[in-house]
Amino acid sequence: MTSSTILKTTSLLLVTLFLIFSFFLLWRGHDEPGGGFAGGLVASSAFALYTIAFGAVGARQNLVIDSRLLIGVGMALAAISGIPSLLLGDAFATGRWADVEIADREIHIGTPLLFDIGVYLAVLGVVVTIVFALAEEED
């Protein structure tokens, strides 16, 4: 697969932007529009763009771990996020929140964030697996 220099150059920039934006969506997700699903889709579009510009082999290397494993990790994280409340005697997946102080800033984090991260990874894994499979079919 060959593609133009313009695409290659701009896509490097865009991929970075997409990934940062996807983290932003993931982070603000619980109380405001956004969330793991949207974030995951944005992140996977970054990888899709990279695949178009540089081919599936390079994209696979940049993902570091096998995209199918990503699905498993994501699903497991999402499932595990419900367990703490279960152990504490509440119903499954009841939100548990804590205010953690990191570098003088108070951050409000909880199990729903873990759930969202799980969804993010699972969505990323699924879409990227499909994109890679389609791209390799063409090669």
Binding site: R68, L69, I71, G72, V73, M75, A76, A79, I80, G82, I83, L86, G89, D90, A91, F92
Partner: peptide, 24 residues
């Protein structure tokens, strides 16, 4: 009761994730 009702879904999900980790 809470645990008993959710575990039949939770256990297969976690095992599915484990199985993905050992696909080979």
């Amino acid at each position: 009761d809470d645990a008993l009702l959710i575990l039949p879904m939770l256990v297969p999900l976690l095992f599915a994730c484990l199985a993905i980790a050992v696909l080979r």
